[in-house]
Amino acid sequence: MKKIYNSINLEKLKNIIDEQEVQNKPVAYDLLEELVFMKETMEELKATVQLHGATYIFRQGEQEYLKENPAMKSYNATVTKYNATIKQLLSLMPVSTNEKDAFMEFVTSD
């Protein structure tokens, strides 16, 4: 892992999972690693879209039309998977309201 983002700090989340009664800790750790990877990937894709735009003019012979940037398509697919992975991770967390609220606050904080 190259970098750890403020919104998903893998080490801090691992500590939270270690301290709580998480249903399946190895799965939770794997999900955290995937989340970090997806976040890094989304940052790269976002930079590509910001640099080159969400669409481009596709030319083939005399025809030309507006086409979605493949990086935009990948970004959208990754965001969907990212959100599903977060939901899956949260489903492993204990039901206790205080602990879940603290976890959610941590995950969503900047």
Rank of each mutant, 00 (worst) to 15 (best):
L31V: 02
L31Q: 01
L31R: 00
L32A: 01
L32E: 01
L32T: 00
E33H: 09
E33V: 00
E34L: 01
E34H: 09
L35C: 00
L35K: 02
V36S: 05
V36E: 14
V36P: 15
V36M: 03
F37Y: 11
F37V: 07
F37K: 06
F37W: 13
F37T: 15
F37Q: 09
F37S: 05
M38Q: 07
M38H: 08
M38N: 14
M38A: 05
K39R: 12
K39H: 07
K39P: 04
K39S: 14
E40N: 08
E40L: 05
E40H: 10
E40I: 03
E40F: 00
E40G: 12
T41G: 12
T41K: 12
T41D: 13
T41S: 10
M42Q: 03
M42S: 03
E43F: 09
E43C: 07
E43P: 11
E44A: 09
L45W: 00
K46R: 11
K46N: 09
K46M: 14
K46V: 15
K46A: 09
A47H: 04
T48A: 05
T48D: 04
T48M: 04
T48K: 06
T48S: 04
V49A: 00
V49Q: 05
V49M: 06
V49K: 00
V49G: 00
V49Y: 06
Q50H: 02
Q50A: 13
Q50V: 05
L51V: 07
L51P: 06
L51I: 03
H52F: 03
H52S: 08
H52E: 12
G53F: 06
G53Q: 06
G53V: 02
G53Y: 04
G53T: 09
A54G: 02
A54F: 08
A54K: 10
A54P: 03
A54M: 02
A54V: 08
T55H: 02
T55K: 10
T55M: 10
T55F: 01
T55I: 04
T55A: 05
T55G: 03
T55D: 00
Y56H: 02
Y56Q: 04
Y56I: 09
Y56S: 03
I57V: 15
I57D: 13
I57W: 03
I57Q: 11
I57A: 09
I57N: 08
I57R: 10
I57Y: 09
F58H: 15
R59E: 14
R59A: 10
R59V: 15
Q60M: 09
Q60V: 15
Q60H: 11
Q60R: 11
Q60W: 10
G61S: 11
G61V: 11
G61R: 06
G61D: 05
G61A: 08
E62R: 15
E62H: 13
E62M: 15
E62A: 15
E62S: 12
E62D: 13
E62C: 13
Q63P: 12
Q63F: 10
Q63R: 14
Q63L: 13
Q63D: 12
E64M: 13
E64A: 14
E64Y: 13
E64D: 12
E64I: 10
Y65C: 08
Y65E: 14
K67F: 15
K67I: 09
K67P: 10
K67M: 11
E68K: 02
N69S: 01
N69M: 04
P70M: 15
P70Y: 07
P70D: 15
P70N: 06
A71S: 11
A71M: 08
A71R: 10
A71K: 10
M72C: 03
M72G: 00
M72W: 08
